[in-house]
Structures are given as structure tokens and as C-alpha cells.
């Protein structure tokens, strides 16, 4: 119970902080009226538009003081109403409904690839720590960490989609198969730095776990090497990986801005870049909220997994 209350409290606090800052920044940076009406929003375009301007102001409540607008926006958001886009008057909700699933799939995809590659790789390197295979792996993983996401994206796109035509150049999503193939390259681009990060972390933790007495005990029991690695060493070594897994959600979202643009994927990352360029701040804010919720949710999940991984962690402590 305490755990639930704590998680909710955490969620509320993070949301408040994030939205307050974002709402404030966006409000004072661009001119919302201009974004809604275009050039006629400017006084210089003539008095004949004064009425239109007033109407728009009223409709979007632009004249209310900041706390009231913020409060109203929070209230609306709580009822699921994220407002309308300034640019085309479509509800933000329908934009989210449209774009969010694509991005979620992309991110889950990237994380799955990252875990699927990094965990076996780390197990392999840790079991031969400081020998040739491990040292070579270190070089490889540092290279993977060093390549900027945009460069990797361009490279993958050019090699696999254009040159060898192994993957489609355009996003297609008629079938699940199409979806998975067209998202494969972007997911790999996102996963690459994650793979390296996870591998490094898990390798280090595994190496220290393998020094523990209980590993000697397991070996003295005559258990095979792979069994000891998987069934004894892995679980107690997952903590740093898990912590970083939770934090990486934020950087994945950053990466998706780049990747979705390059691969022309109609996801939330693509959308938000556009929205920022046209100062469409209901959309930007909605995305900020969604991202924060996702971030907190994933980290609550991580906490839950901790208690499952280590019986000594007190669930309510």
C-alpha cells in the first residue's frame, strides 16, 4: 500500500514540475495567437481583423492570467481533454491516439533488441573476463557508444534500405510483418548505444558477482558453467542494468525525434518536432505529459522488478 501511495505521489510531483516548466516556457517563448491565426494575428495587419483576433483570444483563453490558464489546462487534461492543435484545430487527443502507438512500438522494439543482444553478450564477456574476446568486445562496445544516433541512422538507412534494399525505405504498416520490418532499422539505430551501455554495466556487475562466495559454492557443487552463469550470477547482477533501463526511457525519446524524422515514421517524435517548429504548444505539452507519465511508470515498474529480483528489498521500506 505504501508503495502504491509513494509511486502515485512521485507521479504527481514529476508531472507538476515538468508541466509547469514546459507550460511556462512555451507560453513566454512564442506568440500563440500568431500560430493560430497566422499573419492576421499581428496588429499591423489592420483593424479589420480585430474581431477575429478577439474571438480567437476568447476561444483559446489567451487573455487569462498564467496561473488560471495553467490551472484550466491541468483540469482539462485530467478529464482527458488535451485541447486542440493551434495549427489545424484537430484535437490533441486524436493526434496522440494516431501517433503514439507507432512510437511505443518502436521503443519497445528497441529495448527488446537491446536486452536480447546485450545480456547474452555480457554473459559471454564476463565468463571470459580480461581474455581476448572480452577485450575485443570492449573496443566494439565503446565504438557503439561513440557513434552519434543521427550518423548511425543515416548509415543504416543508406546501407540497408538504399544500397542493399533489405528493408523498405518508406514506413509501411498494413500488416504486423511490414510494421516490424519497417521499424527494424530505426529500432536498431536506437538500440545501438543501449546495447553498449547495458553490456558494459552488466559485464562489470557479473564479474563482481562471479567473485562471490556463493559462486564458489555452486562450482564446488559441480554445477555446469552455463547453469551457474544463468541461474546464480545473472539475477543478482541485474540491478545497475535495471536502474539504467528505467532512465534510458528519456534518452530513447530524444533519439526517436531524430530517427523518426530520418525514416519518415509517423510517430510522436516526428510530430513533436513539427509542432515545435510551428509553436503548436498544446501538442508539445501533451507530449511532455505523456513522456513524463511513461518515465515515471517505467521507473515504478523498475522498482517493482527490484523487489522481485532481490528478496531483501523491502516492498514498503
Amino acid at each position: 500500500m505504501r508503495f502504491v501511495v509513494r509511486s502515485l505521489l512521485q507521479l504527481v510531483l514529476v508531472l507538476f514540475a515538468v508541466t509547469f516548466v514546459a507550460f511556462g516556457a512555451l507560453n513566454y517563448l512564442g506568440d500563440p495567437l500568431f500560430n493560430i491565426l497566422g499573419p492576421i494575428a499581428l496588429e499591423e495587419s489592420g483593424p479589420e481583423y480585430a474581431e477575429v483576433r478577439a474571438e480567437a483570444r476568447a476561444q483559446f483563453h489567451l487573455d487569462d492570467p498564467f496561473p488560471i490558464r495553467y490551472g484550466r489546462w491541468v483540469g482539462d487534461m485530467l478529464t482527458g481533454d488535451f485541447g486542440r492543435s493551434y495549427s489545424n484545430q484537430v484535437t490533441v487527443r486524436s493526434i496522440l491516439a494516431d501517433k503514439l502507438p507507432v512510437t511505443v512500438v518502436l521503443m519497445v522494439y528497441a529495448q527488446v533488441i537491446a536486452i536480447a543482444v546485450s545480456v547474452p553478450w555480457a554473459l559471454w564477456t564476463a565468463s571470459r573476463a580480461y581474455r581476448f574476446g572480452d577485450k575485443a568486445s570492449t573496443v566494439v562496445s565503446f565504438t557503439m557508444l561513440g557513434i552519434p544516433v543521427f550518423a548511425l541512422t543515416v548509415l543504416l538507412f543508406w546501407l540497408f534500405a538504399i544500397r542493399w534494399q533489405l528493408f523498405p525505405t518508406r514506413y509501411e504498416d498494413e500488416t504486423i510483418g511490414q510494421r516490424l520490418t519497417s521499424l527494424f532499422l530505426p529500432a536498431v539505430a536506437l538500440a545501438t548505444p543501449l546495447i553498449a551501455t547495458y553490456q558494459r554495466l552488466l559485464r562489470t556487475d557479473l564479474i563482481s558477482t562471479l567473485q562471490e562466495d556463493f559462486i564458489s559454492v555452486a562450482r564446488a557443487k559441480g554445477l555446469p558453467k552455463w547453469y551457474i552463469l544463468f541461474r546464480h550470477a545473472l539475477r543478482p547482477s541485474l540491478f545497475s542494468l535495471l536502474t539504467v533501463f528505467g532512465i534510458q526511457v528519456a534518452s530513447l525519446i530524444g533519439g526517436s525525434l531524430v530517427v523518426e524524422r530520418q525514416f519518415q515514421i509517423p510517430g510522436i517524435g516526428f510530430e513533436v518536432v513539427e509542432a515545435i517548429f510551428r509553436d503548436d504548444f498544446p501538442v508539445v505539452l501533451a507530449v511532455v505529459v505523456v513522456v513524463s507519465v511513461a518515465f515515471v511508470a517505467v521507473n515504478v515498474l523498475v522498482d517493482l522488478i527490484y523487489t522481485f529480483l532481490d528478496p531483501r528489498v523491502d516492498f514498503n521500506g
Binding site: 556463493f214 557443487k221 541461474r231 532481490d310
Partner: peptide, 24 residues
């Protein structure tokens, strides 16, 4: 070897606090 350690010979270590896997 496969059925030597843990069958013909077994070993107990110094520190009981760290001899057991804490998560199993």
C-alpha cells in the same frame, strides 16, 4: 569430472553469510 565435484568431494566455506545466493 562431470560427476566428481559435488558428488565425490564437497566443500564448505568460511563465511556462511556469503555462501548462499541471496536471491534464491
Amino acid at each position: 569430472r562431470k560427476h566428481f565435484y559435488g558428488v565425490d568431494v564437497a566443500m564448505v566455506f568460511q563465511n556462511p553469510m556469503t555462501s548462499l545466493n541471496p536471491v534464491k
